[in-house]
Nucleic acid binder design. Structure first.
Lengths: 347, 347
DNA sequence: ACTTGGCACTCGTCAATCGAGAGTGCCAGA
DNA sequence: TCTGGCACTCTCGATTGACGAGTGCCAAGT
């Protein structure tokens, strides 16, 4: 009852099933993989694997299919993340090279991931709360309104419009805006968000009386922008790949698409990563808490400039997916995007 | 051979088919609609309608289904765009009210449209080329780099980073940036894009020699941003609705999803509108040039601040859709979004 | 000139049936 | 512990036949 061989059998089952998407039987198995034993022996092993809950027979006399637990064992113990071939690496760098701004980087990344893995790609925008303020600009709009432009170190830009309730076009108004602008940037530029938020609040208290109301308005709008959870955003691509995967999959495609439109839950899901930032996280089928995504697996990884993870990206597909390939793609793309953000950071 | 009655029959067929999604026969028709004639008479009319190419029988003895041409006649001559009920109007305004910035407006709009019509919603970002420049800000980044932030009257913000090749942190550098900033805004603020682009080019020629190189760099990055076609963007929502529509529809869902990911062609499609800016445009099935979308209809309309249309939005669904309802929703949302942009424009 | 009821005919759908094939579990022997 | 053999089970696809919905056409009525 060699445990090793049993795991070999499991690995073979997973590989065959991923390739053919049909239950795999003992005979086909010994034909395609040269495990040095006969079909009958394999059958005994399969019976044991089934007892352990790693594989499962859809009905009496059909082949076996891996269970979620089976995939889990496969991912954890039986597969090596195979490095991408040079062609793929080149494709990644070429594709991401030409990005002009953050939106463009995210957009290209998600499309790239989708086409590399032929599955649904998910990319989270660099989170605001883990970022630092690069610069804050105030632009008068109309007579009394002020547009606040918040530029983040990741390249992201946020904007708000507030009504200051006083004229900004006369000399006094212009001076006021200039004063507030320089004070704000003095305390907030280059500072992490949470710290910036507190400092800005103090700024209001210290402001000379005539400027207080306007400062207050600006700071409160900024505070909104700094904490607002809504601002966590995700971008998707490759939904069309869902339709191609398997033949019974189309039935479950509706709930999946619905779940994908719930960006909030999707974000929560992406946020849950393992401890090691440099590791690919895999959630398989029912390990996944979100209703509608329980027939799918999510392969994800954090990315970000420097050592800091500012956001996550990943790939979602049927539990029957090519895990080694998918994990390799996700890791390669995440690393490359991090590099790009790094470069943009210093420039 | 009353032509009127024939059209009544067509209308009844369309309505029934939209509701049941099954071919409709003569008997069911006279039962559900009180046209004062017998089933046999209706059959004769149906034979004529089929000759005219407005309806079609999937097989010898099944009911009839409208053709694309049939829907066209229905839309053009047989349906009144029914105004939304007050509840729906209220829902629209409430849902769009709380938007904090342009991204948010677009995001909410596309979700709203999708849930109102229970179909796939498509919203184009306000086009850059038809907009005016509101303000241009220059922010030094690192020692020699400059971030250019372009703020558009629609609320959209674009950014580029350029390397000026000279120090910007010393007094001279700061003065240079300030000078360029004020010169640029002097000629470009409040000006339509195309005009701004030409004026900016002249600005380089007129710049004093020592500033020329830097001005040149800034202007060329701006020129990029002003014309770049890539910057036309669309946002989608409600893809999950595709899976719900009908039972045979799932088969065609793959190509549709693929077509929806081709944002470029989608944009071209959205751009093709009728002449009257205040009219809803409907493209039915094969009238639609895009492969993969030929089993769908697109209901779209322009929107924008003031009289100018700056972009389009619309809804995509199976040719068998509730046209009056969809057209009403699209029109109402387009108008409301225009109002919001108007308000943001003046504030 | 239309409209209507009647009737034969055409197909698609559904359920039941049957055979083939794949795969299993178990047993006895090496 | 492995192997070959064998009986058994179950799904899948094709085939068949009854059924029903719907049509087209015709002859009679208004």
């Amino acid at each position: 009852m060699s445990e090793d061989r049993r795991l070999m059998v499991l690995r073979a089952i997973v590989q065959d099933y991923v390739q053919t998407s049909e239950p795999v039987g003992s005979k086909a198995l010994v034909e395609r993989h040269h495990l040095g034993v006969s079909a009958a022996t394999v059958r005994n092993d399969m019976a044991l694997l089934e007892e352990e809950g790693l594989i499962h027979a859809p009905h009496t006399s059909a082949g076996r299919v891996p269970t979620d637990a089976g995939y889990r064992v496969f991912v954890d113990r039986l597969s090596a993340v195979k490095p991408l071939n040079p062609g793929e690496r080149r494709a990644i760098s070429q594709f991401l090279e030409g990005a002009v701004d953050l939106d463009d980087v995210v957009d290209r990344t998600v499309r790239l991931l989708a086409s590399l893995t032929r599955q649904v790609a998910v990319v989270q925008y660099p989170s605001l709360t883990r970022s630092t303020v690069r610069h804050i600009e105030l632009v008068p709009i109309g007579a009394t309104h002020l547009m606040i432009v918040l530029i983040v170190n990741t390249g992201r830009v946020e904007q708000r419009v507030v009504d200051t309730g006083r004229s900004l076009v006369d000399a006094e108004g212009e001076a006021l805006v200039a004063a507030i602008r320089s004070r704000i940037n003095e305390v907030a530029a280059g500072v992490p968000f949470t710290l910036a938020a507190t400092r800005l609040r103090h700024l209001v208290e210290d402001a000379p009386e005539p400027d207080k109301a306007t400062t207050e308005a600006v700071v409160s709008a900024l505070g909104d922008a700094l904490v607002e959870e809504r601002e966590e955003r995700v971008v998707l691509a490759g939904q069309a790949n869902l339709a191609r995967a398997g033949t019974d999959f189309p039935r479950t495609i509706g709930p999946i698409l619905e779940a994908l439109e719930e960006h909030v839950t999707l974000l929560r899901l992406l946020g849950q990563l393992g401890d090691d930032p440099d590791l690919v996280s895999v959630r398989i089928g029912s390990e996944n808490p979100v209703t509608g995504l329980q027939s799918t697996s999510l392969v994800s990884m954090g990315y970000g400039s420097g050592a800091e993870r500012v956001a996550s990206l990943g790939v979602l597909g049927p539990t029957r997916m090519d895990y080694p390939m998918t994990m390799a793609s996700v890791r390669a793309v995440a690393r490359y995007v991090s590099e790009i953000l790094d470069a943009n950071q210093t420039t």
